[in-house]
Amino acid sequence: MFLHDLNPTVKALTIIGAVFLLAFVFDPVTPLLYIVWTVLVTFLFGTFKKRYYLYYFIPFTLFAFGMFWTTIVFSDTASATSETVSFLGMEFPTEDIWTAAALGLRVLAFASLSLLFLFTTNMVHFILSLIQQLKLPPKIAYGVLAGYRFLPMLKTEFQQIRAAHRIRGVNRPDSWKEKLLQYQRFAIPLLAGAIRKAERTAIAMESKGFTGAKARTFYRPMRVQWKDWLFPVMMFGMLGVTIAVLLYFGYFSWYDGQL
């Protein structure tokens, strides 16, 4: 429950900070340990449908594996050292595998961090917090919120347009070309409709007295309390500890122009 009550801006900045730091790490062990830590924190301090988490996490794993594999295959062989590992009858330099694993796991670490945010944050609260903590201009923030509202609408809209097409007797596409044409026929009405509606929404907002002025009260006041700082302390602290321990055992490596 703790993650859901956190101030969204503090949470977002912490995660961006952690991502930034991890981007400089070039060994596979640090991200691996940090993934375990992040997932642990997410499960311990968040409430959500665990099934969905897996559902989101699996494609990332595949993506990370893809990254791992391509880095090995397309890597710059010139810099390879003599040590190699053989796999499926092919020889790969160990150094490459090491880097590839670092890159792949890094992607996964980013993914687990962003999932932590996604699964425990209410979007509207996040934007409201950006206005209140980071002084994002309300005009942009509410404009974006209004646009964001179109997201569920777009899905139904898309289904409706597809249904409308079907009902109106547009044939199922048989060839690639027809399929492309079909998409164009979707795109224009979908966009035109969305723009029209957006315009009307903006008009309705203004006639409810919205001017974009900075001075406004909030139905959902967002505050930063002392316990909000616990999260960055926890996340950065763990990163520091991991790095320190790995340094000690000699597994750690920074980005220093390798690759």
């Binding site: 201009p137 005009k139 942009i140 404009g143 974006v144 209004a146 646009g147 964001y148 179109f150 997201l151 777009l154 979908l190 966009l191 969305a194 723009i195 509606k197 957006a198 315009e199 929404t201 903006a202 008009i203 907002m205 203004e206 919205f210 974009g212």
Partner: peptide, 22 residues
């Protein structure tokens, strides 16, 4: 940001939402 009309911001963000999906 003051030269922007609300209408333009909302339309822009709707376009962004659409293309994010794309």
């Amino acid at each position: 940001m003051n030269s922007w009309k609300l209408k333009e911001i909302v339309v822009m963000s709707v376009l962004s939402v659409v293309f994010a999906v794309v």
